[in-house]
Design a protein around this nucleic acid. Structure first.
Lengths: 184, 184
DNA sequence: GGTTGCATGTAAATGGTTACATGATTGT
DNA sequence: ACAATCATGTAACCATTTACATGCAACC
């Protein structure tokens, strides 16, 4: 699912500019599903226009820079519908946080505590923002609810196990022999 | 957190070959934290050796291709510890599944059901595999437990809400005017 | 006077993945 | 006979990010 398809999907919800698409992807309804930078959004919108999947009208604004509002076309709607039918690629997930946590024993305990507390705060903030959010479609509600369920579980886990991992004394690994223990 | 650092981290757990590192990343203890392909792992291991962060010894095996077993060096351990102290980049997450679900109304109901059921099965399989898994360090247990908590929440959510989203009649969007509704 | 928000865009660099090349062994 | 597992590596390709370029308005 490339940025072009993502933009098309957002346009299917309503007309938008590149700037607004970015916002939808980071704070709006599509937050945490697929991030993208301006460097990929603007070229994607140009490509969509060139293919006839989107139309663009210029908007001169008062006391604001000009805007380019994109609308999805019938061809675009058809293309979107088609791309929704392909087998979805497996989720791609990368977490520096979890990677670092894996080596909890190698971290200064106060740093570990800071890391976990920041993460709890992040989940809580997002949960709050998500709760006061108007849902426009069944699909939106479903995905939104799933996100909340996951964040709630993550936050609760961190809160419950925070002290346990902090109490564990930091292992002094000098002279510790390394054994291959990667299976399972 | 690039593939080089990830390899270094895995080597800190124990000696391994490139092939074994890949396995650790997809089925082993590091599964679902950071994926990588051979095309990035092998060059990373070469770079690690060139920098003196890892050492390599050739292993001629019986009835198997030769192996190159890498070990982390003291310099490598120091480099790893340093990279664990930097502020972690925000998690990067991309889900075709959630993106598609967002447009549940545009999908054939049977396709929607198939998608959700496959996903539930995926979570359940992984949960089972994770339960019968030996944990080697406090960090490992912590991350592992968090992964389980999240997968359990996701699976339960899908099971609870599966029928609700399927019962919702598919909206016929012909002639529906599009309004900008991306905020919040 | 500095930062944030609005607004669009490009070029270079990055950091990967995919496909290819090779080949023995074991299981179906 | 065919697929899968083990095992390493390269080169071409790809999508996307980062940094740069520009500029006005509002707020503190």
């Amino acid at each position: 699912m490339d940025v072009k398809t993502v933009c098309l999907g957002i346009l299917n919800f309503g007309d938008a500019s590149g700037y607004e698409i970015k916002k939808a992807l980071e704070e709006g309804p599509f937050a945490h599903i697929h991030a993208a930078s301006y460097g990929s959004i603007y070229p994607a919108l140009n490509a969509l226009s060139a293919q006839g999947y989107a139309e663009c009208r210029q908007m001169t604004q008062d006391k604001r820079p000009d805007k380019k509002i994109y609308s999805i076309t019938d061809a675009g709607r058809r293309a979107l519908q088609e791309s929704l039918l392909v087998t979805p690629a497996p989720d791609s997930f990368r977490s520096d946080f979890l990677f670092i946590l894996f080596f909890a024993e190698l971290l200064p305990p106060d740093r570990l505590a800071e890391l976990i507390d920041q993460r709890i705060a992040w989940y809580r903030e997002n949960l709050e923002r998500m709760e006061q959010c108007n849902l426009e479609s069944p699909g939106h509600s479903f995905v939104h609810g799933m996100g909340q369920a996951i964040y709630r579980a993550a936050a609760e886990y961190l809160e419950r196990n925070r002290d346990q991992v902090l109490e564990n004394p930091t292992v002094d690994d000098s002279g510790k022999e390394t054994t291959t223990a990667l299976a399972g």
